[in-house]
Design a binder for these strands. Structure first.
Lengths: 234, 234
DNA sequence: CGAATAATTGAAAAAGATCAACGTGAGTGG
DNA sequence: CCACTCACGTTGATCTTTTTCAATTATTCG
């Protein structure tokens, strides 16, 4: 198989979306809101590969991811399972929904989250308007993530898509060690494929291509080392 | 050219996203907010194919689309122009941004919009908390549109993508006549291609395919009639 | 009317999907 | 602790789809 040319220019539109970029940790939130939310929330732990909520269920709760990682996916009518996003600590889940969840949330590793009853948050927002700011900020984060996702999916080749994905992923401090340049993948080949809109065979082949062309070095299936060559693909 | 099989099952996930679905007109908004916003806004008319704001410019204003249609696009570093969304009356523009616009907005036809200074809206939101609700609602609408966009882009073939696009488009009362089943396209083949992540040649070929297989009937380049056959592709 | 822009069409090449076979490795029960 | 199992990952061969590049035809707008 001849796998297309190396992308020397990269389409990714990496401009600062600072305030909305989803990377903020709890430190960004004003302490008063946090303590208010803390009073009404339940702390929950979920093991890897468990479902937090399922598409179509009544959306009674919103969640705040404290640690770990999870996958948002959408079951389509034709049986495909589309991965809409991967979520990291600092992000909220379930804030976009109306009466029922519009998508499912599944843990990729062990997670730690805070659960808040939607109705409680709603009524509390009247006394603490900054809760609204927080919700707005989180929706912006989701929107920016969606924009990024769309940009990735629009890449002309699977190689471009995967490189873009890996470069985005390498911004996660929890799973990328900048010293050793080792990336710990918390998701399967199929998850990546369902996120980028391709088959898992293609994902696997592109990983192979990236290795033979010295963009990455595979330590094992879930640990890959980025080379300077892939990092300079701006 | 042999153009793949007819999609009998359709992946589109058409569940109700009622409150957030972007179809709401001004009637949905509480009259008091509208009158408040009306006091501080400027009414603007823009001819077809003009730029409302450009990616990277200071995001001083937010806009409320009253009539017409426009295209949100994003200039990528590799020179491609990605269409992120098409916007219809009732939708806000520029509410997701921070200091600068993260994307551009270009009119497709003559439009009529209301312009509000961002700082004014910000300070007014303190006295009128329902403005926050409005902003939240609009961000949800953007997010649902993005989700839909991602679903379309994930379709396995260009034919699936275009059929999904046309079926979505046929929900726009301004540009679809249910009696004659005629759809008036306000965007070019290239706009559609840039939205669905394909080349305009492919868009053109799929239109041809749909016509020869009796899914549509072309009246002219911008007017196509949907047949019962395409409408029953759920 | 004529120039510029948009859309169509063709032929060849590239990329990705599909289907099938085969490795690999983490976890489990004997 | 080891062998077994099953899910996950890789690889190959073939076929379909899409892109690319080039040429041609429509359409719009001054």
């Amino acid at each position: 198989m001849t796998l297309h040319n190396v992308p020397h220019t990269f389409p990714h539109h990496r401009q600062s979306c600072s305030g909305a970029s989803g990377t903020q940790t709890s430190g960004v939130l004003a302490p008063d809101i946090l303590s208010v939310l803390d009073r009404i929330c339940t702390t929950i732990r979920k093991p890897a590969k468990s479902v937090i909520f399922r598409q179509g269920e009544p959306a009674d709760f919103i969640y705040f991811l404290q640690s770990g990682a999870l996958r948002i996916d959408c079951q389509l009518e034709d049986g495909r399972n589309l991965v809409l996003d991967f979520l990291w600590p600092g992000r909220f889940l379930g804030i976009v929904e109306n009466d029922v969840y519009a998508w499912s949330a599944t843990t990729l590793v062990d997670v730690h989250l805070k659960r808040l009853r939607r109705s409680t948050v709603q009524s509390l927002a009247q006394d603490y308007p900054r809760i609204m700011d927080l919700l707005l900020q989180q929706k912006s984060a989701s929107l920016m993530a969606a924009k990024n996702h769309i940009i990735l999916m629009s890449c002309p080749t699977a190689t471009h898509k995967l490189i873009g994905f890996l470069l985005d992923y390498s911004k996660r401090p929890e799973y990328y060690n900048p010293t050793t340049q080792v990336l710990t993948l918390v998701m399967s080949r199929k998850d990546i494929a369902d996120y980028l809109g391709m088959t898992f065979e293609t994902t696997s082949r592109v990983f192979k291509y990236l290795e033979t062309h010295n963009y990455i070095k595979k330590i094992n299936h879930r640990q890959i080392q980025l080379t300077p060559q892939i990092l300079q693909v701006s």
